[in-house]
Each structure stands twice: as structure tokens, then as C-alpha cells.
Design a protein around this nucleic acid. Sequence first.
DNA 1: AAGCCAACCAAGCGCTTGCTTGGTATACTG
DNA 2: CAGTATACCAAGCAAGCGCTTGGTTGGCTT
Lengths: 205, 205
Amino acid sequence: MTAHGPQASEQNKRPNTGAAKRRILDAAARLFRQRGFARCTVRELADAVGIQSGSLFHHFKSKDDILFAVMEEVIVDIDAALAERLDEATTAEAKIRALIHTQLVFTHGPRANATAVLVHEWAALSTEGQAALLERRRRYFDRWHAVFLLARQDGLVNLDPTVLQQLLHGAVVWTAYWYDPDGPMTLDELESAALSLVLKSAPVS
Amino acid sequence: MTAHGPQASEQNKRPNTGAAKRRILDAAARLFRQRGFARCTVRELADAVGIQSGSLFHHFKSKDDILFAVMEEVIVDIDAALAERLDEATTAEAKIRALIHTQLVFTHGPRANATAVLVHEWAALSTEGQAALLERRRRYFDRWHAVFLLARQDGLVNLDPTVLQQLLHGAVVWTAYWYDPDGPMTLDELESAALSLVLKSAPVS
DNA sequence: AAGCCAACCAAGCGCTTGCTTGGTATACTG
DNA sequence: CAGTATACCAAGCAAGCGCTTGGTTGGCTT
């Protein structure tokens, strides 16, 4: 049952290296979200992956390190995804939509677990871990801020850009607690609803 | 279920009864918020109160019970505070303002710690604990919903009431993570900013 | 074929955890 | 005054925790 040992694959010299790590990270994101980091034990996590608890420490040097890895991965990816979307957006309105879209996709898409962990378990990270991720975090929010400065210049919004940015970010992040992607409302509809919140006038499309 | 122990009455025969409990609950709210429920130990909590860890269990039957008591107290109080504010508000706009105001005051006022614990540590509560608080929670959100149904009828807002309610609630709750009551922006200004978010047209006073 | 090394298991160590126990000081009550 | 209940302390227990250790396996390289 326990298929172990590397397998042959394309040109990769170490084809299976990292596959176990991947499964650990996915299970960790799911369990850390469901049960909380502190309440999730390494034995639980190992069971979910299908290995012994001690074997986890062959891939990560500590439980804290697993949390860090989960968070680092998602924070890097969401920042990259946002950067790409913003590049493709030309108008200020399209850029605000890109902000909302990216956050919503990460919050409710395939990366939902890791995203929730990033939001929820920040305080569980060690001081050094927080410091190591802070620059990425800042970069992500700088993008938000730049968009709202632009939108304000264009007269698209009529509140203090910083406040508006934070209120919108909260509204979107909070959807994790009530919005059901399998329910009647589509993500696109939710995106439009959030967008129309921050624009002065009538709702969009 | 908070044990009652000695009777508290008008002319309190045991003036100090309940004082220890009060200090435990306050310290617990603070520590559970700062460190998280799971990472905060009963020894830590006892130290903060100035008693031995074992003595905590004279007042509460378990650590879980302390969490429950913190949450129950704040959920009852915030619902009562909201009900009172809503009664005093006549127009739909004034009622929306009451929603925002109450949530903001609890999030940033003297009850900030317990409110943050209620939001953040819900998953740490036992199944029975959640069930026991669910009715109060529902009542609170029913008040939100009724206000937004009214606002929609009055043509004050132009989005689906349920979605708008959730988005606003998220925006306001999230202020816990960025708004500084000691900073340049007053709570009233923040309240107005949040209100103008959900109203269709120009910002309010 | 021999050697290497990543990937795993089985066992368990040292420590911390929530909580219990037995006892004491103090205060109120009949 | 004895009787009773409260509020606490000092000590420690059983369980569970993160993590370490020593050993085995099997594919890959040379």
C-alpha cells in the first residue's frame, strides 16, 4: 500500500523528489485550516499523508517550518497572480476588479486552504517567520494601495484611498466565512458586487 | 454554561464573590486574543490573574468553559447593545449606521478582546458550545438582515441585501486588523466611511 | 556488483499540558 | 462556639505533545 521510493519520469534527475513534500503541504493546509495550527498534531498530519509522524521531519525540520512553507508558497503565488492581472488591466476600474478577482480566486479556489491559513494563523508564526514573509506581504498590499491612489486620481472613488482599500480588502477576505462557491451565486457575481461597493454610482454590468 | 455558585443579589452579602471570575474572564479575553486559545496555557492565565493554575478550576470546570464564558458574555452584550441602538434609529440609514456603530464599538472599545476572541476562536469552541451560542448569533445576524431588507425596500441600497450585509459586516469586522483607535482617524469617521460604502451615492456628512 | 542516499518505519524520550487531589486559612451562619 | 462553604495553594498525575534515534528498504549511480 505504501508506495515509496522514487519513480522514473521525464528528464528529471530526481523525478519524485518533492512529491511527498507536496502531499504534506496540501494536507497541512487543509488540516491547519480545519482544526487550527495548534490543535492539529503532527500525528494527525502524518496520518492524512499516510506516513509515520517521525517521517515528517525528514522533509521539514519542525512543525513550525511546515506552517511557514504553506504560508510562503501562497503569499508568493498570490502576489505573482495579482501582478499579472494588474499588468493586463488598463483602467483603474479594471485594476480594482483585478484586486478583487485575485483575492476571491485564492480565497475560494484550489488554494483556499493555504489562503485561509495565511490569514488565520499569522499569529502562530514565529517572529522570524513573520519577518521573513513581511516583505512579500508589504509588496502585495502596496499593489492594492497603488491602485486606489490611481482610482482616486481618476475620480473613480470618493473616499480616503487607504481606508477604502482596507474596507474592501476586509469585505473580500471575509467572504471565506459565508460565501459558498457551490451555492447559487457565482464568483463573478460576487466580484461584481464587491466592485460596485467601492464605485460611487450604480452597480456594474 | 457558567456555573452560578454563590448568589449575586442587590445587597450583596459576599461583596467579593464574582470578582475573581471577572478578573479571570478579562485576562482570558486578553490572552486568548494575543496568543490564541490553544497556545495560551492555564498557567499563563493563572499568572496573569495572580493565582495558581489549579485554582482556576475552582471557578470554571475546564479551560474550554472559560472560552465559552468569554464568548457567551460578549455575544449577549453585543446583541443587546445592537437591539437598543436599532430601537432608537428611525430611518433605514440610521439603522445601518447603528449596525456599523455597534460592531465598531465592540471591536475597538473596552470589549475589543472578547469580541476578537468571539470572531477568531469560534472553531476552538466545542460542538456543544457552538450549539449553545448559535441561537444568539443567529439573532444578531437576523437584526442585520432585517435592516438591509428595509434599506432595500426604501431604495437606499441597490445590491442584493444578503450579499451587501455580508460584505459590510466583513469590512467592519476586519477593521480589527488595521484600524488604530489611537491613530489620526476617529471611530466616528470610520463609521461614516463604512456607511458611505453601502449607500449608493455621495459620502455622508 | 558495490556503494550511496533519500525515504521511510518503529520505538520512545523529555517535556508540557489540562486537570485533580488533599489540605489550609478565612469568613459567614445557626 | 462548632459547622459549613468559599477561595485558594502546593504538589503532582496521566496523557499527549513535538521531535529524535537507530535501523531497513530499494532505486540510482558508478
